[in-house]
Structure formats: structure tokens, C-alpha cells
Design a protein around this nucleic acid. Structure first.
Lengths: 212, 212, 212, 212
DNA sequence: AATGAATGAGTGTTCATTCAT
DNA sequence: TATGAATGAACACTCATTCAT
């Protein structure tokens, strides 16, 4: 599923190049200044071209935001899938997934922050597009949990824990002013994974004994 | 600490009344239409007075947002403190706090959503004001954890777990399209608290044995 | 039938006043500079208010044009009807009508010129509105001809001659660089009416003799 | 008198060919979309070449309009002169001229409509160029009238009647929604010519008798 | 000679804010 | 104290025109 943005430029390769430029410049700009406050002229300038050229590659200001969102999620998904596919489901696989995900959230923290800050400003269809990508990511975690802890966890546990992992990754970037002051990424990853492991271990014990 | 908004009206009681009106109308409006998209005229209308009157009680459009933020955090803090004050520190106290907090996040989910969506649009000093209130809340959880699990948890554990609780509460509202489809608030609270308890239990075991 | 333009101003009397101002200024401006070339800022200035105020009384630039058109046709229609109503159908009545109409076209020549220059730029529904008013005017002439020359003229003659009168009136303004150099309005009216009378006389003779 | 448009192309034959292409495409486009609304890109496309190529054959967008005007008037003049040259001045010659002219106005009605709709948008010098061509046409009618009815008509009559003929021809295209619903071109021509003849006959009678 | 990517001045429109009543 | 008409800076977007290839 790809959203068609539209352009009056004929050279497809050039479009790709310019849009990459644009997306990069835009993220940079949006870090300092939110989408709403950034003018189209500023966006153009940040991308290194004129306002006229900007509008050769997009149709609406909104499209810039979409470009940013799309780039992030594609990156996230690509990286996550690369990690997942190569691993046997196991505690180690879960660790690998969590570590990769947290690592990614660290690297892309600006982009992800931008994405979430602006998501609500996108038109409904673009919002759904992003939420779908998000669902796919949640599914990755759910699958790993399911594969590795099928008999320790209920369906509900899996959903809840996946969500917890998901937002703990984002939290690293969102709440950096608290967390990154107290922890290194490694420490954060290790700590959270330990807490997670404890939960899973405990849930397993409980289930063994036949409790809720 | 109270942010001075400024007003040309002398009657303090009237100011309070009008601002309450304003804040209520604004949240209603912002639920449907983000702050950026809402015009001052719409805000005035939602509050039930004219654009001229609006500007008798605020100085800038931004102030409206600030009013909303302030109202939310005051409410949160008030309720949380009520819980804390009446409880001995214990597992039960933690449960009470978590439950109250989640309950509050459920009740105020629109407001909190609005607050977080717009936080970054506020001027730096207002942002800090909000983040300070947030810190106070985190401290509440930290205190309870400290009081009840002092020898089970390291300082880092406390910080991390407080943060986890904090965002899990917000998650209930932010990710409602996933979570509120799968869980009732009670179930969510119970599940998360159980997972939390398991963590704490496991951490305690570990510490007992003299581990990490 | 009145086209609703829309305004955010509540005082109806003020709206009327401002729109009259606007329409007057706009005609003045459009005499020198066509609608398309005139900027909204220029229009506002010509009307004596700021760009912001302009948009308190219209919704779109187009509305200005509509205001102009509407004012003109209402004026034309009102004046023509005043003349017609008071006259018995007769050669004299026809003369009165033609004279009044030509007189009017002389007085409103700028306005009418503007109207016809810009008519095609109006949205379809506004165009129809104007053409309807035009039809009403044609009918006035047709009625007079019918009443006074019923047995001298065929239906087709009436239509054609009405059209001829109609455009001869407009011609006085449109082709002023030729006609107003050669004739006074009185001379033009007299000449054209004489030519018209001759036609009618001849048609009558023809019909009397029973020919086409 | 030919207006110099300017081109960076050396090959004169190619220039003629491309400009013919351009003029044809432009009329087609302007029928649907007025000059002001048509973009240069659309004009280039309608002519079958790129925007870059368009600007090899014109200097300004305006030039396109000028090209259209020029083509129309040259055609009109050529045809009219063909008629004049081959005819003795007489009532029949007048009929031939009127018929040819009306016929042409029928064939070129789109072009003429475009021309008149946009005339006022042309720069002053181009407007004068067109009005001069118009004057030449009026002169053709004046000459025929003068030659054939010299002693029946005053100079003023000749001017007035020439103008009447002229605009009745244009009227056929301009007011097609009324006239072409009621008449065929032949019927219209015949009717108008009859009315004209009656006028001329009557004027002749009057002059004979020595009146005004 | 032909192309089409790049440019940026210019336009319609919005909306926070002011201020006379 | 309340009103709402007036203001103009600021913005998204367009499009005629240029110029390197």
C-alpha cells in the first residue's frame, strides 16, 4: 500500500532523489519547529530548494508530513523484519527483537517524535495508513511472544505486553529528558527486558500452578 | 507555582468563572478540532461569549491551551494526593494509587489527549510548567514505591517503574483504539497491576539472593 | 431571486452600506483594470477598507463581481420598469422605452461594460442569473412591440428587433470610440429610432400587402 | 501592419508552422477555458509542444492571444475583400457582403468570441492593432453603402448602418443562445438583410422628398 | 531546435488581535 | 464589562518565465 502523492516532474529517479532530500530537511526542521508552525518556504529552504520547486514534488503541505511518516515506518519495518526473520523464536529472539527495536527508536527518535506529534494533523486516510503500519509492528512482537511463550501467556497477556514493549520503545525517545538522564540505552534495554522477563517468568509459574 | 495569564478584568471571582467556562468549552472544541485548527472565534463561541470578551480574559490564544493544561494537572494532582494522604505505604497503597491514576486517565482521557497533542505547541516556559507537574506526579509513584519496596528496588528500578506506570496510564487513553477494544478499564488495571506485582516480586527475590 | 453571498458581520444595515461602498469602488477599479488583473487588495483599497474588512463582507473574490453585476441589473430593471409601467403601448411608448433604455446605457456605460467583460468569469449559476435578467429586459421590448405592432410583425420579427434594440443600446457604450465621436446621444437615439420606425413601417406595408 | 512578436528561432518557415499550430490549439483551449485561466503549460500542451518550445516562439503569454486575434482578422479581411473585389456596387453587392460576413461570423464564432472576451486583457498597443483592423472592416461596409446608396444616405447614416451590420454579425455568435434557437443562419441573414433593405428604402424615400 | 526542471514574485484567503462603542 | 467591526501580517499555493542540457 503506497500513498500516491503526485508530481509534475517526469523523471522518476529525480523525484525519488528530491523527495528524499525533502524528507530529510523536513525532519530536521520539524525537530525545531512543528509542522504547523513551519511554513512551506521554510520547508523548501530546509530541503535546499525554492518554494516553486517544492511544489513540483508535492501537491499539498500535508504531503510533506506524509513523506516523513512513510519514510520512518518503512525504515522501522524493514529493520525489524531483518532481525525477526533470522531468529528462532526463543527468549533470545525476544531479546534481539526488543534490543533492535529500542536501538531503532534511539536512532530514529527525532523522526518518531515528529511522526507522533503530527499524526493527528494528517488526513484520516493517511492516519489509517500509519496506524496500519503500527499494527504490523505490534504483530511482530505478538508473534514472537506467541511462538516463544505460547503456553505461558494468554492472548490478552500477549496483546498487553506487546503494547507495553511498543510504547516503552517510544518512551525512550519521548521522555528522553527523564530517561536518558538516568540510563544509557543499554542499561534501559537491559532493565526493561529484565522486568519483562520477570513478568514472563512469573506468568509462567502462575500458569503452571493453574492460576489466573 | 501558578502561571499569570493576565486580564483587564478586576473582579477576581468573575475571572475564575469565565476561565472555567472557557476551559470547559475549549476542551470540548479541541476534542473535535485541534488547537491549531480552532480559531479564536470558535473558542469564544464554544465558551459562550464573544471574541471581544475572550480577550478580556486571556492575552494570547496560547493562554487557552495553558488554561486547559493547568486544569488537567491540578485535577490529577488533587486526586492523586487524596489517595496518597489516606494510605499507609504498602502493596495495597500502590494498587490504590495505580487504580486511582488509571481511573483518572480514563475520565480525563480527552483532556489528557488534548494536552499531549498540543504540549509542544506551547511556549517553552509553559512546557516546563507542565513538565514540572508531571515530575511531581512521577514523584508520587516513586515515593510509594520507595516507601513500600525500599529494600527490593534500586533507585533506578524505582525511576523506571514509575515511568512505566505513568505511561501505562496515559496509554489507556492514547491507544484506546487497541486497548479499549480488548479490555475493560478494570481488566486493564488488574492485568497491568499484576504484571507490575510480578516484576516487583521477582526483583525482590533477586535482591534477596544478592543479584543484579 | 437573490444570490446569498455570506458575511460574518451581524449588522445587516452595515452590510448593505459596506457592500454598496464595495460595489462602487469595484466598478471604478474594473473600468481601469479588469477583474482578473485587479487584486483583492486593490479592490479593498478602492472600496476604502482593508483586505481584512473586505473579507468580512464577501467570501470569495468572485462575490465582488457578482455584487457589481447584481447592482447594475437591478438598476437597469428598476428604471426600465418605471418607464414601461406608465405608458400605453404605442409608437410613442416604444420611443419612450428606447430613449430611456439608451439613456440608461449611456449613464451606466462603464458598469455595463464591466458586466459584459466579466460575465464569462462568473460561476455558471451567477451567469444564468444575469442572463435571466437580460431575458426579462428583452421581454419588455417584445411586449411593447407586440402590443403596438401585433398585426405588423411576426413573432420572429419581434424577437429579432428586440434583440437589435437591445444590442444597439449596449453598442452605444461598447463602441463609444466610434459612435460617440460621430453622434450625440440624442442624435444616436433619434437616428436609430428612425431606422427602427422605417423598418416597422415597411414591415407593416409588407404585411398589409400579404407578403413575408 | 504586422505586430512583431519575436522568436529565437531562425527558420522562418518553421516559425509560421509552429505559430499556426499554436494558434489553433489556443483557440481550442480558450473555447473551454478563458485566456486568464489557461496556463502556459496548457497552451503548450494544446499546441502539441513543451513549455520550453512554446517560449521559443513567443515572448509573453499575451502573444498567444495576439496570434489568435491576428489570425481571425486576417481571415475576415481576406474573405471580405474577395467579395468586394468581384462585385459591382449594388444592392446585390451589399447582400453578398453581408451574407459573407455573417457566414464568416458563424464559422469563426468561437474565435471571435475568444477575441472579444480577451481584447481588454491585451496591452494597449495590441488593442489598437485590433481596433484598426475592425475599422478597416467597417470601412468595407461603408464603401459598399457609399458606392451603392450614395444619394440615399447621409454620411451619418452610413456610419450608423455600417456599425449596425457589423454588430449584427457578431451578435449571431455572441447571443447564440437566443438567436440560434430561433433562426437558422440563412433565416437570420435574410431577415436582417430585409430589415436593412427596408431601412435603406425608406431613407431613400425620405431623401427623395428632401427630409432628414 | 527541443525539453522540462527550477525559480520566486505574486495572489487569494485566513485569523489573531485591537479598540471604539 | 461586553461587543463585534476593523485590521494587516502571514500563509499556502500558482504559474509565467528562464536556462542548462
Amino acid at each position: 500500500m503506497v500513498k500516491e502523492i503526485g508530481s509534475s516532474i517526469k523523471d522518476e529517479v529525480l523525484i525519488q532523489k528530491r523527495r528524499a532530500q525533502l524528507q530529510k530537511g523536513a525532519v530536521n526542521l520539524f525537530k525545531q519547529k512543528r509542522f504547523h508552525r513551519a511554513t512551506t518556504r521554510e520547508i523548501a529552504k530546509a530541503a535546499g530548494f525554492s518554494i516553486g520547486t517544492l511544489y513540483e514534488y508535492i501537491r499539498k503541505k500535508e504531503d510533506v508530513l506524509f513523506l516523513v511518516c512513510d519514510a520512518i515506518y518503512n525504515e522501522v519495518k524493514a529493520r525489524m523484519e531483518a532481525v525477526i526473520d533470522t531468529k528462532e523464536p526463543s527468549e533470545n529472539a525476544l531479546y534481539q527483537a526488543v534490543e533492535s527495536y529500542f536501538q531503532l527508536m534511539d536512532e530514529l527518535q527525532d523522526e518518531v517524535l515528529v511522526l507522533y506529534q503530527e499524526l493527528k494533523a494528517l488526513p484520516k486516510d493517511a492516519q489509517e495508513y500509519v496506524l496500519n503500519k503500527e499494527k504490523e509492528m505490534l504483530c511482530l512482537f505478538e508473534q514472537i511472544l506467541e511462538n516463544s511463550y505460547a503456553n505461558a501467556l494468554s492472548k490478552e497477556d500477549i496483546i498487553l505486553i506487546s503494547n507495553n514493549i511498543f510504547i516503552q520503545g517510544q518512551m525512550w525517545g519521548f521522555r528522553r529528558w527523564v530517561l536518558q538522564k538516568e540510563f544509557t540505552l543499554e542499561a534501559y534495554t537491559l532493565k526493561q527486558f529484565n522486568l519483562l522477563k520477570n513478568q514472563l517468568a512469573h506468568q509462567a509459574q502462575i500458569k503452571e500452578r493453574g492460576g489466573v
